[in-house]
C-alpha cells in the first residue's frame, strides 16, 4: 500500500528545567536536524526563569531561519495574574502561532485572532469538542495522552473530513498530572516560594519507584510524568494511514534530537517507498534502540504503563 501522505516529526517543548546554555546548545542541534516542527517555551512552572520570553523568541527566530516551523508553547496550569500576562505576551508575539495548554490560552488566542494548537492538556475527548475549538481558531490538536488508537479512529470516522491536523505523542515521558504543589521542592523540604528551582538538579525529572522497585512516576516540579517512556515507533506506518499529521517527541536528552532526525529522514525517504519497507526499517530501528523502560498501553486502550507487543499490522 502506498503511503497516504507524509507524516512529520515534531519536537515538544522541553518539560524540564535546564540551564540556558544547555537549552541553547540543544536547539542548535535541532536547527541542523530534519525535524519539521519545534514547540518552544516553558509549560510547567513560571518560577523557572533560566530563559526569559525574549530568549525563547530569539531561539524561535534562529530555528525559523533554519527552516523550522516554530510554535510557542504556553503554560498548562495558569493561576496568577502575572502568568496570565505572560500568556498574553506569548500570544501577541507577532510572528508565531501558539500551543494553548490551558483554556485561557484558547480564550486569548481567539480574542487576538491568532491560530493555535491545542496541547495535550486541553481536554479534547470527542469530535464535537474538537470541531468547536476549530471554530475558535484551533488548527491542530495533540491527542490527550490517555486516549487510544480506537478513540482517534472514531473521531476521524465521525462526520466529514477533519478540518484540522492531528498530532500524537510518539516518544517520551508522558505528562500525567499538574498540581499546585511542587513535588521536587517538597522532596527537598523547600517551600515552593523559596524553591531555588531545585528541579534543575534533575534533567529528566526525579524517578519514583514503588516499594517493590517498580518504576512508576517521574516528579518534575508541579508536573507528574510517567516513569516509562511512551514508544510508538512501530505504529508509525499505521498512524500514517490513519492520517496522523505529526509524530511528537517529548525530549529529555540530546539523543532525542538524533532520534527525531533519523525518523524524519526515514519518513522523507518513505515517500518514495512503500509501507512494508518502512515497517521493516522501523522495526529494525526500534529493536536496536529499545531502552529499558517503555510503554504503549494507552494507544492500545490499556493502562498507560503497559507495554503491548502488538505489531503494527494489528
Amino acid at each position: 500500500m502506498a503511503i497516504r501522505e507524509s507524516m512529520k516529526i515534531s519536537l515538544a517543548p522541553i518539560s524540564y528545567c535546564w540551564s540556558k546554555a544547555d537549552v541553547e546548545q540543544f536547539y542548535q542541534h535541532v536547527a541542523t536536524s530534519s525535524i519539521d516542527t519545534v514547540y518552544l517555551g516553558e509549560t510547567v512552572c513560571s518560577r523557572r526563569r533560566e530563559l526569559k520570553f525574549a530568549d525563547y523568541l530569539a531561539l524561535a527566530h534562529m530555528l525559523k531561519n533554519h527552516g523550522k516551523h516554530v510554535v510557542l508553547s504556553t503554560m498548562a496550569l495558569v493561576e496568577a495574574q502575572s502568568e496570565l500576562n505572560e500568556l498574553k505576551r506569548a500570544i501577541n508575539n507577532g510572528d508565531f502561532s501558539i500551543e494553548a495548554n490551558d483554556m485561557a490560552g484558547v480564550y486569548y488566542a481567539h480574542q487576538a485572532k491568532i491560530p493555535f494548537v491545542c496541547g495535550p492538556t486541553i481536554n479534547n475527548y470527542n469530535r464535537a469538542s474538537l470541531d468547536l475549538l476549530h471554530q475558535k481558531g484551533m488548527y491542530r490538536f495533540v491527542m490527550p495522552c490517555e486516549l487510544s488508537k480506537d478513540w482517534l479512529q472514531a473521531v476521524i470516522d465521525s462526520g466529514s473530513q477533519l478540518q484540522y491536523e492531528i498530532e500524537v505523542l510518539g516518544h517520551g515521558y508522558m505528562p500525567l498530572a499538574h498540581s499546585a504543589r511542587c513535588f521536587t521542592a517538597k522532596h527537598y523540604q523547600l517551600p515552593k516560594d523559596q524553591c531555588q528551582t531545585i528541579c534543575q538538579r534533575h534533567s529528566k525529572g526525579l524517578l519514583a519507584q514503588t516499594q517493590e522497585s517498580q518504576p512508576l512516576l517521574r516528579l518534575n516540579g508541579i508536573q507528574t510524568q510517567s516513569a516509562a517512556q511512551v514508544d510508538l515507533i512501530s505504529q508509525i506506518p499505521q498512524m500514517i494511514n490513519m492520517g496522523v499529521d505529526y509524530w511528537r517527541i517529548s525530549p529529555n536528552k540530546l539523543a532525542d534530537v538524533t532520534l527525531g532526525d533519523t525518523l524524519a529522514t526515514l519518513l522523507n525517504q518513505a515517500l518514495l517507498n512503500d509501507n512494508a519497507t518502512l515497517q521493516d526499517t522501523l522495526t529494525q530501528f526500534e529493536q536496536s534502540n529499545t531502552a529499558t523502560h517503555h510503554c504503549n498501553g494507552y494507544w492500545f486502550g490499556q493502562p498507560g504503563m503497559h507495554f503491548s507487543e502488538q505489531s503494527a499490522a494489528s
Binding site: 498548562a76 481536554n123 500525567l176 499546585a180 493502562p303 498507560g304
Partner: peptide, 21 residues
C-alpha cells in the same frame, strides 16, 4: 484531590480508567 482536576491521568496510567474516561 491534589492535582488540577480533569487533567490527571494517574489512575488511567495504572488501571486504564480515569475519571474522564
Amino acid at each position: 484531590c491534589i492535582m488540577a482536576e480533569g487533567r490527571c491521568h494517574l489512575s488511567s496510567y495504572v488501571t486504564g480508567q480515569s475519571p474522564n474516561t
